[in-house]
């Protein structure tokens, strides 16, 4: 299971990198969203998938899933949500100001 997940994570990272390197601002934002997905999964995978109960004490189990990475990922999901929302609006604003979302046209002036 872990190895399969790592394969999936590798794919997600590749896809996100490819998207980040494209010319369209929207695809770059997609890439960043995918990148955070990949990071979350990597963190979870590396904490191991032992046969434990969910990290709820009421479950009456002797083994639990590791709660700490889950807490970290929860934080990360929320933060990446904030960042993505901001990036989206930034992209929108850039498009309104410059009438293009092509990065090769958003290169600033030659004297900068």
């Amino acid at each position: 299971m872990e190895l399969l997940m790592i394969l999936l994570i590798g794919i997600i990272f590749s896809v996100s990198t490819y998207l980040i390197l494209t010319n369209s601002l929207l695809r770059v934002i997609f890439g960043i969203i995918m990148l955070s997905h990949g990071a979350h999964l990597l963190l979870l995978t590396l904490s191991g998938f032992n046969e434990g109960a969910p990290p709820l004490l009421g479950e009456e189990s002797s083994v639990y899933m590791d709660p700490l990475p889950q807490a970290l990922i929860l934080t990360a999901i929320v933060i990446s949500f904030g960042v993505t929302a901001f990036l989206l609006v930034l992209g929108y604003r850039t498009y309104r100001a410059h009438e293009t979302d092509k990065l090769d046209k958003l290169r600033g002036h030659a004297d900068e």
Binding site: I6, I9, L42, T45, L46
Partner: peptide, 20 residues
């Protein structure tokens, strides 16, 4: 870009397996 992306995926997977 394709080469760079695949190498990123590869290194992340390799690091993942190594840390496992």
């Amino acid at each position: 870009n394709l080469v760079i992306s695949i190498s990123v995926g590869l290194i992340v997977s390799l690091i993942g397996i190594s840390s496992l």
